[in-house]
């Protein structure tokens, strides 16, 4: 009995997540249209201003998103009409089994964005790579740490010395 119950729960979870996302779409479209209305129009003798095209896109986006909401509603209410409107999610492509890992990755990305310029490319990329690789594969910590170090130093050298593209030095300014 528990198996069917679990699968029903999963379907609901997926549908509700999708519902929350789909409801955001017309809101986004509405916000976009409102922002497009804020664009200053040129004098009235010019027939097509910088607002026309975004408004066309915005209204089309609103119509499409409302259509998606309607189809989802029909699907959630068990209607047959839109069975083909939402292709069944292919597990391998769209499933996430470890949300904690996603949160960790997003957190480390936020760290990288915040730290890249203050502490420099070499140190921030080293921390970024070693934290993530050791989180996902703690047993290979020596290899992970060594490769993280090599990667950050090699690409810093390649970009700054060979390709002459400057990268931030940060706290290692005196060293490089």
């Amino acid at each position: 009995m528990s198996q069917p119950r679990r699968s029903v729960l999963n379907v609901l979870k997926g549908t509700w997540g999708e519902a929350a996302f789909t409801v955001m779409l017309p809101l986004f479209a509405g916000l976009y249209i409102w922002q497009a209305m804020q664009v200053t129009e040129p004098p009235s003798n010019i027939s097509i201003g910088p607002r026309t095209f975004p408004l066309l896109v915005g209204w089309a986006m609103l119509a499409t998103s409302l259509l998606l909401c309607w189809k989802l509603l029909v699907k959630m209410l068990g209607g047959q009409a839109s069975q083909d409107a939402f292709v069944p999610a292919e597990d391998e492509e769209t499933a996430i089994r470890d949300w904690l890992a996603v949160a960790v990755v997003v957190g480390v990305i936020a760290f990288l964005c915040a730290a890249l310029e203050p502490i420099g490319f070499v140190v921030s990329i080293f921390i970024f790579l070693s934290v993530l690789s050791n989180f996902f594969s703690p047993r290979r910590w020596i290899t992970n740490t060594a490769i993280s170090m090599l990667f950050s130093v090699f690409f810093y050298w390649l970009f700054t010395r060979v390709l002459e593209i400057p990268l931030p030095n940060g706290i290692l300014t005196g060293l490089f």
């Binding site: 890249l116 790579l129 993530l132 690789s133 594969s137 690409f155 593209i165 990268l167």
Partner: peptide, 17 residues
């Protein structure tokens, strides 16, 4: 576990440069 973080690091490098 190494390749995916490296892709992110590569992406960072490409976009920042």
């Amino acid at each position: 576990s190494l390749l995916y973080p490296m892709i992110l690091a590569f992406s960072t490098l490409g976009v920042y440069s």
